[in-house]
Amino acid sequence: MRSARPISLCHASQEFTDMMSRNTAPTAHEHDAQQALIEVRSLHVTFGRQRVLRDINLHVPRGQTLAIIGESGCGKTVLMKTIIALVRPTRGTVLFDGSDMFALRERELSQQRTRFGFVFQGAALFDSMTVFQNVAFPLKEHTRKSLEEITSMVHARIREVGLPLSVLEKKPAELSGGMRKRVGLARALILEPEVMLYDEPTTGLDPIMSDVINELILRTRRRHPVTSILVTHDMRTAHKVADRIVMLYPLSRLSADESQILFDGTVDEIDHADDPRVTQFVRGEARERLMEIGEAV
């Protein structure tokens, strides 16, 4: 691990203000704004009375692999779902390839969504279908391939995610959690989409399988140009595959004028981040949270 640097509190707050101003000033990423494939514009999402996302701005250039980190419940999944218009924002919008995802007609939206592959946090396999039917679903829906072609593509994908072909005839309920997750990954990858959205692809997998998935993500990128957004808690994965890391923070812990994006930079930069909340996450330290739990008990 990285050597921990001593943190003096007043020092940290000074550094924090610097950080914030750096965040609002144009960064290196905004030079690419013109080619941004995905552009999230002042996005607000509120569920009932609970505000989950506030004023999120994000540009993801073509070909980039962006990792989103942040503690549980801070809105990472909601952000990913908003990007493919499964959640409607209360304010703001998402531009994909120049067109507003929320101004499209239903038909056009379906069309745009075929350019995405989404790996759900809970796999979200169709439980009335077998694994084979699940993985073949996008192919049957959007291509006119013959059964042989479909079968060979499904077999290739299933092998790629490290599963034996014997799972093909099983129903999702007969698989373990990690196996289901990998089937979900295979299903999302089968159309070789332009954009991959991975919601915690390695959570719940053993270390070896996690690394297999990391390699698979890298391999996918090598095989064809793909833009990826990856939600992860696993800093190893982030280090291995991400070009850029964005850290979200729960709104409940922020004051009204702070940006919800605490950190936006490269993988190397996050190791030397000045914000104590970022280093706390990266190093995985409980710190003052222990006090909160103590109070609760």
């Binding site: 038909r107 379906s110 969504r113 989404f118 809970g122 979200a124 396999l125």
Partner: peptide, 18 residues
């Protein structure tokens, strides 16, 4: 309802099937 709760409806939509 089960499909909604287990995100299968979202999954369907995310794959471009209405």
């Amino acid at each position: 309802g089960t499909m909604r709760v287990t995100e299968q409806i979202d999954a369907l939509a995310s794959m471009g099937a209405n």
